[in-house]
Design a protein around this nucleic acid. Structure first.
Length: 472
RNA sequence: GCCCCCUUCGUCUAGUGGUUAGGACGCAAGAUUUUCAUUCUUGAAACAGGAGUUCGAUUCUCCUAGGGGGUGCCA
């Protein structure tokens, strides 16, 4: 039996879990799931100045919302420092690293000269002894090979070869003795037994350097898969205005985690022509071969469509749970035209069957249900007001009011029959009846089906709202 | 500057040395509908450009262009 696969998601906690990170996490998770392996989480907080506990919290919450549960507790890279230092010293002893000191100016000078000469910058001082006065300010640099080349056998990008003379002697230990990211990833991935490193392709060049470290240490290489980055809708690097928002922002906008997973999975990965990929199928189908090499653009319209699909397909209970979570989450406030406090979830639940299929997002669904929770007298929008001012409207409203008063069983079918009969008996087109009724009951010309509106409001409320608009 | 990667409808993508280059979103038109939305039908819409290999290239190779990434005592 082959060794079980272990993947990891390793974000640096300098901000929320943005969409690119979420997808990287998803791919790692899906691959582990599909292979019956493990998915680990490592917080790369070696940069103490930029890492925050708020960010860690946001990442954890985002992954939780997306349903990407890691196996075991998260590993905090900062807690592995001692181990990183041990490895750095090992490298020093084996002659694969050296102490060095150079001022910022000197380093800048080296880079400027290299650029001028049209070559890659390389730190030239690996064989120079350090003056005593700089001993305690020195860093540990990796002694990277100069001859030959390094090839990454990437599972997504194919074989990528970089000449070793392009790769500089990177810093392993800073002058304050703390390990850098380059050292830490290698050590942690090795120590955690990671078999597949799936990460953004902004790490591709770094990967060559990391491979050199693995080789110096005589450690086995994990498999690498560098996935292309996600771009904004204009093809430029994803930024806030494109939707580089935190996962929790997507929750606030009314997206379902499963829809998010489906959309993100299809962004850069495919399984033939399949578009609707529920999570169980994702786990069944996910593979590294299906990952595309080109960067993909983030497209909200498609996300909306997928989300609408899942809202329609989910059960009332599932949608209700999502709604509860949305409304009760006090980390953010959903953008609503009315206060979320007014929402009566029990009533909303009864309306879900006809509300679900019309909404692309949970927010849209709540907005469509606004008529349920508005208080009388309703605020009429201009068009609704106009519909009420039409010739003969108050007569019609009075008429149906009387009919509604005496309707025996308040159910949708009876309401429909009642209105159709009324139209027929009074020789009216239905188009004469529905618009003013809709206005009176919802304050708007746009609403769910009129029978559903009437039924869901209940007799008392319907009579009251009609009364409100009939001139005395 | 130097190094690396990428390029099929507007977008996400399928696909093959010979296909009417397929699907989805979006868009347009039509049908259904009391409104909006849904749903259904139909339609427009792509192999970045140039060489080469080949009987034949969207597919293989090279070049160019465009985009992206790296080049940190950031991750």
């Amino acid at each position: 039996m082959s060794q079980p696969i272990i993947t990891r998601f390793a974000p640096s906690p300098t901000g929320y879990l943005h969409i690119g990170g979420a997808r990287t996490a998803l791919f790692n998770w899906a691959f582990a799931q599909s292979q019956g392996g493990k998915f680990l989480l490592r917080i790369e907080d070696t940069d103490k100045a930029r890492s925050t506990t708020e960010a860690i919290d946001a990442i954890l919450k985002g992954m939780d919302w997306l349903g990407l549960e890691a196996d075991g507790e998260p590993v905090y890279q900062s807690k592995q420092q001692d181990r990183h230092i041990v490895v750095a010293n090992q490298l020093l002893e084996s002659g694969h690293a050296y102490l060095s000191y150079a001022s910022d100016e000197e380093i800048e000078d080296i880079r400027a000269k290299a650029r001028e000469a049209g070559v890659a910058a390389r730190y030239p001082g690996r064989d120079e002894p350090i003056a005593d006065e700089f001993k305690d300010q020195s860093v540990v640099r990796f002694k990277a090979p100069i001859e030959g080349e390094t090839t990454i056998n990437d599972l997504v990008q194919g074989d990528v070869t970089i000449r070793n003379d392009q790769l500089d002697d990177l810093v392993l230990l800073r002058s304050d003795g703390t390990p850098t990211y380059m050292l830490a990833v290698v050590v942690d991935d090795h120590d955690m037994g990671i078999t597949h490193v799936i990460r953004g392709d902004d790490h591709l060049t770094n990967c060559a350097k990391q491979i050199q470290i693995y080789e110096a240490l005589k450690w086995d290489l994990p498999h690498f898969a560098h996935i292309p980055l996600i771009h904004g809708s204009d093809g430029a690097k994803l930024s806030k205005r494109h939707g580089a928002l935190g996962a929790e922002a997507y929750k606030a906008m009314g997206y379902l985690p499963e829809a998010m997973r489906n959309y993100l999975a299809r962004l850069g990965w495919s399984h033939g022509d399949d578009e609707i990929i529920p999570t169980d199928k994702l786990i069944e189908w996910f593979d590294l071969d299906g990952i595309n090499k080109a960067p993909a653009r983030f497209d909200m319209a498609k996300l909306d469509h997928i989300n609408g699909h899942y809202i329609t397909e989910s059960s009332d209970d599932e949608v209700l749970e999502a709604l509860k979570s949305l409304i009760n989450d006090n980390e953010f406030t959903p953008e609503l035209s009315y206060s979320a406090d007014l929402i009566d979830l029990e009533r909303l639940k009864l309306c879900l069957p006809f509300l679900r299929e019309r909404a692309k997002t949970l927010i849209e669904l709540i907005e469509t249900a606004a008529y349920l929770f508005k208080s009388c007298p309703l605020d009429m929008d201009a068009k609704a007001q106009k519909a009420l001012e039409k010739e003969g409207v108050s007569e019609i409203l009075k008429g149906v009011h009387t009919q509604f008063t005496s309707l025996e069983d308040w159910n949708r079918d009876n309401i429909e029959t009642l209105l159709k009969d009324y139209a027929q008996n009074h020789d009216l087109k239905f188009g004469k009846i529905a618009p003013p009724l809709r206005s009176a009951l919802t304050g708007s010309m746009v609403s769910p089906g009129i029978y559903d509106v009437i039924h869901s409001l209940g007799r008392d409320e319907v009579l009251k709202r009609i009364n409100d608009v009939i001139p005395a």
